[in-house]
């Protein structure tokens, strides 16, 4: 591959970090359902998706390490402080009730599936290769989410009301996924990624029919204030406690061989 210019490099670095950090943090959140899922199958589903997400974070951190000179994946994942992380607020929130976790899973994984479909054709070949793999795996997450949105959106009055209220609550957070980076034009110009705005539009087209099929009502997007800040390192109060817990064992002895 041709040598990357420094601006070009900075744009890709920022882009990879935000995607990988989303996977890492939501992977950890998903794993909090292990042992607590409302049904055995759901316990296994969230645990499997947690494992997939950590695998996706690892694949993206590996690109940062091998192609952009960043430290090794474990160091990147476990030694950066809160301000250095670029995840969106949506993934930081505690698991809450199953209504919130399922709604977050539906909104986030639909966006990620579309994101990696777009990236499968990226001009940055190492990312395109990983994207072609990841999109096939996330397809399972999307199918799982759609099944449950429809199931609970049409089950009982209580399930309907809870899913609608979860959707209303989660939507501004989900819009934060698409916070623009300072490098949107750079990435689009080099055919690396068509942009967060484009992704957001495709996402709205895909979620709308599932929400309607589920008998739920999509909130008025234009009236919402997206939860921005995560991509610039400004996070919710929930991220630091998660990082503290996640790195607790690692920090006992960062040099230990596992």
């Amino acid at each position: 591959m041709e040598a990357l210019s420094s601006l070009h490099k900075e744009a890709i670095r920022e882009f990879l970090y935000k995607m990988a950090d989303d996977q890492l943090i939501l992977g950890h959140r998903n794993s909090e359902w292990t042992g607590l899922g409302p049904l055995l199958e759901e316990d296994i589903a969230f645990s499997s998706m947690a494992q997939d997400k950590l695998g996706h974070a690892l694949a993206l951190y590996t690109i940062l390490h091998e192609h952009l000179g960043e430290k090794d994946p474990d160091t990147i994942a476990f030694t950066r402080n809160e301000r250095e992380l670029r995840c969106c607020h949506l993934v930081e929130y505690p698991i809450g009730g199953y209504d919130f976790s399922l709604t977050r899973h539906f909104l986030f994984d639909t966006a990620e599936h579309l994101r990696f479909e777009m990236l499968a054709g990226s001009a940055f070949e190492p990312l395109a290769q990983v994207a072609r793999k990841i999109k096939g795996e996330i397809k399972y997450h999307v199918l799982h989410a759609q099944t449950w949105m429809k199931q609970l959106g049409s089950a009982t009055e209580e399930s309907k009301a809870r899913m609608q209220s979860a959707l209303n609550e989660t939507m501004p957070l989900a819009l934060g996924i698409f916070e623009a980076s300072p490098f949107e034009a750079e990435l689009a110009e080099h055919n690396i990624f068509a942009g967060e705005h484009e992704l957001r539009n495709r996402w709205l087209e895909v979620i709308a029919p599932t929400v309607a099929d589920a008998g739920l009502v999509l909130p008025d997007i234009d009236a919402l204030t997206p939860a921005y800040g995560g991509r610039q390192g400004y996070h919710t109060e929930y991220l630091q406690p998660l990082l503290t817990e996640m790195t607790e064992v690692f920090r006992i002895d960062p040099t230990v061989e596992w």
């Binding site: 199958e41 296994i44 589903a45 645990s47 499997s48 998706m49 494992q51 997939d52 695998g55 795996e137 399972y140 199918l143 799982h144």
Partner: peptide, 13 residues
């Protein structure tokens, strides 16, 4: 199919 997520990532039940 009972669930697309099984005991390992590559298996469904």
């Amino acid at each position: 199919m009972q669930t697309p997520f099984g005991p390992t990532l590559c298996r469904s039940i």
